[in-house]
Design a protein around this nucleic acid. Structure first.
Lengths: 102, 102
DNA sequence: TTGTATCGTAAGTCATAACTTACCAATAAA
DNA sequence: TTTATTGGTAAGTTATGACTTACGATACAA
């Protein structure tokens, strides 16, 4: 399941900070490292996890790598959410039916 | 931010297994503990985290506690997702506009 | 060619969260 | 009242993942 990777990625607070920072505009590693209270190599490591989860994209620009939000991973979250929501509604409905049968 | 709690909660694979198990039908701790490869007290601890994140509800039934998916937390995920999606689209749009200005 | 800027990765550290067993409280049945 | 079932919590263990510093590769300017 792809969403395992995605939710594991989002599960970390620092990685959520990275996504929050990127929601406005693409940013380089250095810029992110100035904004988020961890070392630059730590930011790189987190970006790697986010990239593998398809939550960010990277575009080399000279010596700099520019990162942006990748909607692919967000799509997966939405699919999971819709599916989860539907099932929860279904379970609630049949639960109520069972209840009114007793 | 409430969604910090939620995403931290979903970040754990065992807790995701719990949610997967509950998507079909409400279940008791004991039932969950049979289905998921961890001890029953571990399940209890995870359920506590999920409850505080508003991802599950608990209904005492005699000596048993029945847990079910709570749509409140799912709603938060949806809000975050929509907001994230909109911002990412906006950023992409203004990024393209900047690009065509250069 | 040298120097500078940028960043990925290796290697090391260690706090913490996910696990366990043990204990006990609450509920229900006998 | 006693016994059985169920589950929350305490306390202890430890693997791991989030952090750091160090190193070196790549791109670009001088």
């Amino acid at each position: 399941m792809t969403y395992d990777t995605i939710f594991t990625a989002i599960g970390d607070p620092t990685r959520r900070s990275v996504l929050e920072a990127l929601r406005g505009n693409p940013m380089t590693v250095g810029m992110l490292a100035e904004k988020i209270p961890v070392s630059r190599p730590a930011v790189s490591q987190h970006l790697k996890v986010l990239r593998e989860a398809r939550l960010v994209t990277v575009t080399p620009k000279g010596t700099a790598n520019e990162y942006a939000v990748d909607k692919t991973g967000l799509d997966e979250v939405r699919s999971w959410l819709d599916s989860m929501w539907d099932d929860a509604l279904e379970a609630f409905k049949s639960h109520v039916e069972n209840k009114s049968k007793n």
